[in-house]
Write a protein that binds this DNA or RNA. Structure first.
Length: 583
RNA sequence: GUCCCGGUAGCUCAGUCGGAUAGAGCACCAGAUUCCUAAUCUGGGGGUCAGAGGUUCAAAUCCUCUUCGGGACGCCA
């Protein structure tokens, strides 16, 4: 709807050469905005003030000449100059009626842009290590990433959602060793569990069900033979590395791999199921192991080597990250020959571009902010513009119950996993609250509010607007009445009540909100918009009956709320929240 | 120490390329409610936008400094 006004201003400017010159660098669309106050009309442009300096004229004078040059439009009722030089536009009812009609005609597609050719976007999110179930912090990454994905898709971008599985490296060996030890314990081998191991119950559960038929259970003495002391007497890292070596020796490298691979795959599948239940799905699950196997890591290192970006020091191979703005150089190959996570990471991002994606978005936990500089450095060094990569950091989540902050450490075990959270508040509320704040803000997640089924709870308030409209149509049927949609369209002029105007105005904002949310990766705009919209609808509902005797008025009112229902449903769908017919 | 994020009403938060009188929900106060769902409604009070300086016709918004809070700074992943 904004473009109606922008186009008008643009055309007027074309008639005014002396202003057009000054306005050349100005995006007209950016001067037009919704008014905060209905007494200022529907849209206002601040273009006169923006041009004042370049045109060397006072703003009100400029505004006057623009207004004089405005063409006639049946979509504009009135134009006024106000304040220091704002041009206020009052749109005609017709303009709003057309918008309602479009919403009903397009239905689920309303607000969506047609698919663009590009840029092709790779959206990577969650990517939690497969060492255990997702916790509540990952839930926010999942909800935020999925919603940003939906927003980008709605904005017409070809977008692929990807989960990078860190299934290589030492963490996986520790996982394998943890499961192995639990398996030993189940088989009656009396060995202590390492301090540095994964202690969750899921490890024991896996140990009980994984396939180990070919493996011979060693004796406790063999396992403990030659192990250094564990913490607190010794170092837990040294201890667990020795334990991994022992496991490989006793079970054979293949035997240990067998346990490790089953364990991580079992966890990965569990994560995938968890996310699927949460309505979060991926196009690709990209394995770090496959990155090594395909030779991408070596390939990337070779490219860097050739470009002279690597050097040796203290037996390790270093990447000159400082040349690319990082604070210090980083190791890519350790003294012991093992490639670091950073090496995989360079290769992974290189691979994303090699697969043909033009624009990369990584959604990471805030604790990863230290990686931003070096991942960019890696891309730059590989010959790709790091400008084509965007990193969105998501801040932490703090759960509250009964007004008190909850402890969420794994050790306390009080409340930890995404599954527990979903079970307690439901998927809809979880998806909603996770994206209700900007990603760069800490999120206080109040379990009591999220669970409450009242209008205090924005999720229910919005969903209820949708259900309430469905209910009105059910009652219409019960009264053996029918909605004549085309008559409703023809009678929209009858909608003159303040609440009707307000609702129409809110509805017409939807495409603009969607665009804003997508461009800024900011689902919270959509969240707040939907709450406002639901409020406008409920206010209307409380002020006026829809199922009235006057058939023309009734059809028109039903037309309006049917459009509202479409938009509430579309918005909720983008957030991954259900739009129920009944509550 | 360096870097990242933040500080807006009693509480939780909007306010996104600077724009007109800084908004919402909760809480609080006063009313209403035989009515399509009480899974309420109407109205009201409440602000040094952390502080100071700067840029601008215009600053919660941009810049600098100060202060407070959270986080990150490994040959871990």
């Amino acid at each position: 709807m904004k473009h109606i006004v922008a186009t008008l201003v643009q055309d007027a400017l074309a008639e005014l050469p002396e202003l057009a010159e000054a306005a050349r660098k100005l995006a007209i669309e950016s001067t037009v905005e919704r008014t905060r106050d209905a007494s200022h009309g529907d849209f206002a442009s601040n273009i006169a003030m923006r041009l004042a300096k370049a045109a060397r004229k006072n703003p009100r004078e400029i505004a006057a000449s623009i207004v004089a040059a405005l063409g006639d439009s049946h979509e504009i009722d009135k134009v006024e100059i106000a304040g220091p030089g704002f041009i206020n536009f009052y749109l005609s009812p017709t303009a709003f009626h057309v918008e309602l009609e479009t919403a009903l005609r397009k239905g689920a597609d309303y607000g969506r842009q047609p698919l663009k050719e590009g840029p092709k976007i790779l959206l990577e999110f969650v990517s939690a290590n497969p060492t255990g179930p997702l916790h509540v912090g990952h839930g926010r990454l999942a909800a935020f990433g999925a919603t940003v994905g939906n927003l980008l898709a709605a904005a017409g971008y070809p977008v692929i959602r990807e989960y990078y599985v860190n299934d290589a490296g030492r963490q996986m060996d520790i996982l394998g060793a943890s499961v192995w030890l639990r398996w030993l314990q189940i088989n009656g081998v009396d060995v202590p569990f390492p301090q540095g191991g994964y202690r969750g119950d899921y490890i024991r559960d896996m140990a009980g069900i994984i396939d180990t038929v070919d493996l011979v259970v060693p004796s406790a003495a063999d396992v403990l033979d030659g192990l250094p002391p564990d913490a607190p007497d010794g170092d837990k890292e040294t201890y667990i590395d020795a334990l991994i070596a022992t496991a490989k020796k006793l079970q054979g490298s293949d035997g240990f791999d067998h346990i490790r691979q089953q364990s991580l795959e079992s966890i990965r599948v569990d994560i995938e199921d968890d996310l699927k239940e949460f309505g979060v799905t991926f196009d690709n699950w990209y394995s770090e192991q496959s990155l090594a196997k395909s030779g991408r890591i070596d390939e990337a290192l070779t490219v860097l080597e050739k470009r002279g970006i690597l050097y040796k020091k203290d037996g390790a191979t270093w990447f000159r990250a400082t040349d690319y703005g990082d604070e210090k150089d980083r190791v890519v190959v350790r003294e012991n020959g093992a490639k670091t996570y950073f090496a995989s990471d360079i290769a992974y991002h290189f691979d994303k571009r090699e697969r043909g994606f033009d624009y990369l978005i990584d959604i990471l936990g805030a604790d990863h902010h230290g990686y931003m500089a070096r991942v960019r450095a890696g891309l730059d060094a590989m010959g790709y513009e790091s400008d084509d990569m965007e990193i969105e950091l998501v801040q932490f989540v703090i759960l509250y119950r009964g007004g008190k902050k909850m402890q969420m450490s794994t050790r306390s075990g009080e409340f930890d996993t995404l599954r527990q959270l979903r079970a307690e508040v439901g998927n809809d509320a979880a998806r909603f609250y996770y994206v209700s704040r900007s990603n760069d803000q800490h999120l206080d997640f109040d379990l009591d509010v999220a669970k409450s089924q009242s209008s205090d709870n924005p999720v229910y308030y919005i969903q209820y607007a949708h259900a309430r409209i469905a209910s009105v149509f059910r009652q219409l049927a019960e009264k053996s009445l029918q909605w004549n949609q085309s008559n409703g369209r023809a009678q929209l002029e009858l909608l003159v009540q303040a609440q009707e105007k307000a609702l129409m105005t809110s509805l017409s904002r939807y495409p603009e909100v969607l665009e804003l949310s997508a461009n800024n990766r900011a689902p919270q705009h959509l969240v707040h918009y939907l709450r406002d919209l639901a409020n406008d609808f409920h206010t209307y509902y409380n002020a006026h009956a829809f199922i009235v005797d006057d058939a023309d008025l009734r059809d028109a009112r039903l037309y309006l709320i049917a459009a509202a229902q479409v938009i509430v449903a579309n918005g909720l769908t983008i957030l991954g929240v259900s739009a129920p017919e009944k509550m």
